[in-house]
Simulated scan of single mutants.
Amino acid sequence: MEGTREPTLIASVRRALHLMETVAAHPSGAPAKQLARAAGLPLATTYHLLRTLAHEGYATKLPDGCWVIGGRLEGLYARGRTQVTLARVRPVLASLRDELGVAAYFAVHREGEISLVDVVDGPRERRVDLYVGFNEAAHATAIGKCLLGQLDEAGRREHLARHPMLDLTPHTITDRRTLDRGLAGRDGLWLDREEYTLGTACVAVPVADETRGLTGALAVSCRAERLTRVRGAGGRLREAAERIARVAVLS
């Protein structure tokens, strides 16, 4: 049957990838003959692949003749970790979008700044136009308040000193004492009631893992009149946040 056909694979690519795995399995490096035996490849093929990998920066030959992984993989690995996180997190966000009819966001607080990792929206609810970044508008967004609420007092003070509280809408909280009360959250939820954009409301929950140093937040945005309904799905949001905390890869 058409659906049961084996995919067309490029043998040389498979051999090269398998050889790279074999090289990586030898922390102190290994000569070509040893790698050929371990990878189950002819020696001539192994030499050819190693020369090609070395030319592209994916393998390096040491002075003693041993082969190790090349420096080009370091940058590829760093970028790849972000993509691994997207591959694991995006289905969770998409599930919330489809189930609740919202736009869904995942952000982390890292090295003193808020970074948006991913956002998923759809035709029913478009993502919020981030005309002011999350760092500058942490006080006015559910996701920002959720992240600030997870910091200690010194961390919050330091962030707000670098990013003064801008007055974005008539509902924006710009008084520090009032903001501090909101940073405690309510029923495990952090809210934005048209504080960032008129007509739009947001709900956020923490995505945290102290053992791995993960300080994050999951948020959803919707039309302001739908806030009560979306807020009622807090249990579903917390469930999704727990799943993200388990699968997110930290760079």
Score class of each variant (00 low, 15 high):
Ala59Trp: 06
Ala59Glu: 13
Ala59Met: 11
Thr60Met: 06
Thr60Ile: 00
Thr60Pro: 05
Thr60Leu: 09
Lys61Ser: 09
Lys61Asp: 05
Leu62Met: 08
Leu62Ser: 09
Leu62Pro: 12
Leu62Gly: 05
Leu62Tyr: 07
Leu62Asn: 13
Pro63Met: 12
Pro63Val: 05
Asp64Tyr: 15
Asp64Leu: 10
Asp64Met: 11
Asp64His: 13
Gly65Phe: 14
Cys66Ala: 08
Cys66Glu: 14
Cys66Val: 00
Cys66Leu: 01
Trp67Asn: 09
Trp67Ala: 03
Trp67Val: 00
Val68Pro: 10
Ile69His: 14
Gly70Phe: 02
Gly71Phe: 09
Gly71Leu: 07
Gly71Lys: 09
Leu73Asp: 02
Leu73Ile: 04
Leu73Glu: 04
Leu73Lys: 00
Leu73Trp: 00
Leu73Asn: 01
Glu74Asp: 15
Glu74Cys: 00
Gly75Asn: 12
Gly75Glu: 14
Gly75Met: 07
Gly75Thr: 08
Leu76Ser: 01
Leu76Lys: 05
Leu76Gly: 04
Tyr77Trp: 10
Tyr77Gly: 05
Tyr77Met: 03
Ala78Gln: 04
Ala78Gly: 01
Arg79Cys: 03
Gly80Glu: 12
Arg81Gly: 00
Arg81Pro: 00
Arg81Ser: 03
Arg81Phe: 02
Arg81Leu: 05
Thr82Pro: 04
Thr82Met: 04
Val84Met: 12
Val84Cys: 07
Val84Thr: 13
Thr85Trp: 03
Leu86Thr: 08
Ala87Gln: 08
Ala87Trp: 09
Arg88Pro: 07
Val89Arg: 02
Val89Ala: 02
Val89Gly: 06
Val89Pro: 00
Arg90Val: 06
Arg90Phe: 03
Arg90Gly: 01
Pro91Ile: 11
Pro91Asn: 12
Pro91Thr: 12
Val92His: 10
Val92Leu: 05
